[in-house]
Simulated assay, not measured.
Amino acid sequence: MGEGRMNVLKPNLKATVITLLEKGLSQREINRKTGINRKTIRRYAQLHHRAIFEETESSIYPTLEGVDTGSSVLPVQNPPPRPPALENPPKNGSACEPHRKWIEEQLRLGRNAMAIYQDLVELFAFTHQYNSVKRFVRRLKKKDPRQFDRLEFLPGEEAQVDYGTGAPTLHDSGKHRRPRLFVMVLKYSGRAFRKVVWKSSKETWCRLHEEAF
């Protein structure tokens, strides 16, 4: 086998060359193992690589069925139709938007997202997931901070009384005792009456109210 021309190998030798190429052997190593000249090996390597490339191309870009184009060309496909647009889509895209006012009222009552979701299912046949309610509630709370009701009273109409135990304090007896603290605050004016007593009883409780007025 001379170096100046390419030999046409017998099927068994061709299979041997292809197998050794697929195993990653170099053309020099194949030449040493088989005695086939390197030009022939190089030519069969090129043919083998081209066959692999064409096979890969045909699998990625199949030709049109029944049409011989002479090359592997991706057929032109029409894009899928767009889904019909909603007539009145919600501004924020939330399924809870139709129930916004009701949800806002429930939030003012101090209810959480889970309780609101359960009532939506029972009262309004709500079919969406709990997470959509949770996100909607979180967005409302972020937009509208927690609200507080302001109570107004007429003069002398109402007062608030706090009566509790204080910290250990040194008594006249020389021992530490816990006094009782009495505080009354008028709702209208905010004026307060405060007094510390050492004994607690019903009589003391009534007397402190009288002294406050």
Rank of each mutant, 00 (worst) to 15 (best):
M1Y: 11
M1V: 06
N7C: 08
N7K: 10
A15I: 04
T16K: 02
T16S: 05
V17S: 00
V17K: 00
I18K: 00
L21T: 03
L21F: 01
E22F: 12
K23T: 06
G24A: 03
S26W: 05
R28H: 08
I30N: 00
T34C: 09
G35T: 08
G35N: 10
I36G: 05
N37A: 07
R38V: 14
K39T: 14
I41M: 01
R42P: 01
Q46G: 10
L47Y: 03
H48F: 08
H48I: 05
A51M: 13
I52F: 07
T56E: 13
T56C: 08
I60E: 15
E65L: 07
E65A: 06
G66V: 02
V67H: 07
V67R: 11
T69H: 10
G70T: 05
S72L: 08
S72H: 11
S72E: 07
V73A: 12
L74F: 09
L74H: 09
Q77W: 07
Q77P: 04
P79H: 07
R82G: 00
E87P: 13
E87N: 15
E87G: 15
K91D: 10
K91W: 10
N92S: 08
G93S: 05
G93D: 00
S94D: 00
A95E: 12
C96V: 09
C96K: 03
E97C: 07
P98W: 02
P98R: 03
P98Y: 05
H99C: 08
H99N: 09
R100V: 02
I103V: 03
Q106N: 14
R108Q: 12
G110C: 10
R111W: 14
N112Q: 08
A113D: 05
A113F: 03
I116K: 09
Y117D: 03
Q118I: 08
Q118A: 10
Q118D: 09
D119H: 11
L120S: 05
E122H: 12
L123K: 15
F124Y: 14
T127Y: 11
T127I: 07
Q129T: 10
N131K: 15
N131F: 15
N131S: 15
S132R: 13
V133H: 02
V133K: 01
R135M: 04
R135G: 06
R139S: 12
R146Y: 14
F153V: 08
F153L: 11
F153Q: 09
P155E: 04
E157N: 13
V161R: 09
D162L: 12
Y163R: 12
G164H: 13
G164N: 10
G166Y: 04
A167V: 05
P168G: 00
T169A: 00
T169M: 06
L170R: 06
D172Q: 12
D172I: 15
G174F: 05
G174N: 03
K175V: 13
H176Y: 15
R180F: 15
R180Y: 15
L181F: 03
L181R: 02
M184R: 06
Y188T: 00
Y188S: 00
R194G: 11
V196E: 05
V196D: 04
W198Y: 11
K202G: 07
K202S: 08
K202E: 11
K202D: 09
T204C: 07
R207A: 14
L208M: 14
H209I: 06
H209L: 10
F213S: 13
